[in-house]
């Protein structure tokens, strides 16, 4: 019996050793080490001012050691970014930007990482209060990396900065630039693709921001009709489009028949669509609104 036990224990150990040695492809060990350093990061981030300089240095040194060991791993950009965040926390913005630039140099062939690193450079300028420098970087990202997720979102983000600053003239200017930007991309995207849906959404945001209600309505209508049966447009999101479309059409354009016609056409073109019941609800509430408006007008005349 003892022999059987010993053999089984031996097998258990052997399987462990073999599976550990065979695993040369996964980044499990890196994930494990990174998780531990991440705990140091979280400890500092909880109260950056209270953390002594040594704590920062230790955490940065640990990240650096890991980067040296795994220079091209999937998680390496994240390590650079965490070092940058630590530098930002101790108000060393130049140091932070140097780290982000280092990351973009190390992964210069990966446009997604480079645009992310540049965006972080911009954010560090923002934190430092150098808004113009930040915007210059964001414009650069939008120009060079328009096809990355970050690059794509930059024009709208720039407009949101001006809104935050309370500068409507520059905000409108930025929105107009965003409109041009998204229209240019839209002409190049494939019909019915997920990226086309993204562009249409961004274009709608830019148009609504500029209060170009008619064009915004058209874009919303196009989105709804083009993606009615698409897997890319979830029912909840489609419901959101219908709501915005009704508000713009009935509220801003004051053209209720147009909204009714759009909803009717959608129903005719898409019989049995899950959204149809919701369209009926919208139609009913629009009609109720119309009647209430009439009553109010009558009362006003009296």
């Amino acid at each position: 019996m003892k022999k059987t036990l010993l053999v089984l224990v031996g097998l258990l150990v052997a399987v462990y050793v073999v599976l550990t040695l065979v695993d040369t492809k996964s980044e499990y060990l890196l994930e494990k080490k990174l998780w531990r350093i991440q705990k140091d990061f979280v400890a500092i981030a909880q109260d950056p001012k209270a953390a002594p300089d040594n704590q920062y240095k230790e955490a940065i040194a640990k990240y650096r050691a890991l980067i040296q060991k795994y220079p091209k791993a999937r998680l390496t950009p994240q390590m650079y970014f965490q070092i940058g965040r630590l530098e930002e926390m101790r108000k060393n913005f130049d140091g932070a930007r140097a780290v982000f630039k280092e990351a973009s140099e190390a992964f210069k062939d990966n446009s997604s990482i480079v645009s992310d690193a540049m965006y972080r450079v911009g954010l560090s300028f923002e934190q430092e209060g150098k808004i113009n420098d930040a915007i210059a970087i964001y414009r650069e990202i939008g120009r060079v990396f328009s096809r990355t997720q970050i690059g794509f979102s930059m024009p709208i983000y720039i407009a949101s900065i001006y809104r935050r600053l309370g500068d409507p003239v520059k905000q409108n200017q930025a929105l107009a630039e965003a409109e041009t930007f998204y229209r240019a991309i839209l002409s190049e995207t494939e019909d019915g693709s997920a990226s086309q849906l993204e562009v249409l959404r961004a274009l709608t945001t830019a148009l609504l921001g500029q209060q170009k209600w008619g064009e915004a309505y058209q874009t919303l209508e196009r989105t709804l009709f083009s993606f009615a049966r698409s897997k890319h447009l979830r029912p909840q999101a489609a419901g959101g489009i219908v709501r915005t479309l009704s508000v713009v059409g009935a509220g801003q354009l004051n053209d209720m028949p147009r909204v009714m016609k759009t909803l009717e056409t959608f129903k005719e073109q898409n019989p049995g669509h899950p959204l149809n019941a919701y369209l009926e609800q919208i139609k009913a509430s629009l009609q109720q609104m119309k009647q209430e408006e009439k009553k109010a007008a009558v009362v006003g005349n009296e």
Binding site: T4, V9, L12, V15, D23, S26, Y28
Partner: peptide, 29 residues
């Protein structure tokens, strides 16, 4: 000696845990 069968059960359970532990790693992944 009564504990031997239970010890074998324990080792078999550890073996299951070992496989589950190595699941996200190459080659079991």
């Amino acid at each position: 000696g009564i504990l031997y069968p239970y010890a074998i059960v324990g080792i078999l359970q550890l073996f299951i845990l070992e496989i589950l532990f190595f699941m996200p790693r190459y080659p079991l992944i």
